[in-house]
Design a protein around this nucleic acid. Sequence first.
DNA 1: CTCCCGATAT
DNA 2: ATATCAGGAG
Length: 218
Amino acid sequence: MLNKKQIHICLDEMRKMFPDAHCELRHENPFELVIAVLLSAQCTDALVNKVTKGLFEKYKTPHDYLEVTLEELQQDIRSIGLYRNKAKNIQKLCEILLKEYGGEVPKEHSELVKLPGVGRKTANVVVSVAFGEPALAVDTHVERVSKRLGICRWKDSVLEVEKTLMGKIPRDEWSETHHRLIFFGRYHCKAQSPQCDVCPLLDLCREGQKRMKKKEKI
DNA sequence: CTCCCGATAT
DNA sequence: ATATCAGGAG
């Protein structure tokens, strides 16, 4: 397991590699961000952006999503995958936004997670990106990178990973760290083909060294 | 734990 | 052919 100092060496290196790490989901307001993050479950953000380009032209407000049938909304987001659940959640979410929150997206994490299709990770992204609150959303990339590097343990749950990261990183660095970990995981420490042979963190990475040894034998 | 699910990379 | 993708709900 890496200690605090080693973790910060890793994060500094990631900042050098990806100095402009940011949210890549296209959005112009908190409402669009909620929809985009909800759609992004088990789907690349590149594909989400492709779909939301037309989607956000057609649907501007919670009202707009409720004016069409469930089937029509399904068709509009079909290429995303998991589209039946997502379409249903979007309409229910819009209904609640209008009824309970005056048509606005709530700023509190505790309120956001009550919305259908919005879990802990989505809520963290929204409070962080839309409202500037410190948060450390743990998605598939953050989890994979944290486990490979040894920032946390392999058997840790997503919630345990989040708690470990928050404990070892200063609060005012949560949001930027979150985006660095995502970029590092998405473009460098990739799930199927991690670039260990050109990784500046190889000396610190238990998984990377294991993989490099395997490569030597081949 | 399982199910939801199309698009893309490997 | 199979693994993976800014997960969440039952």
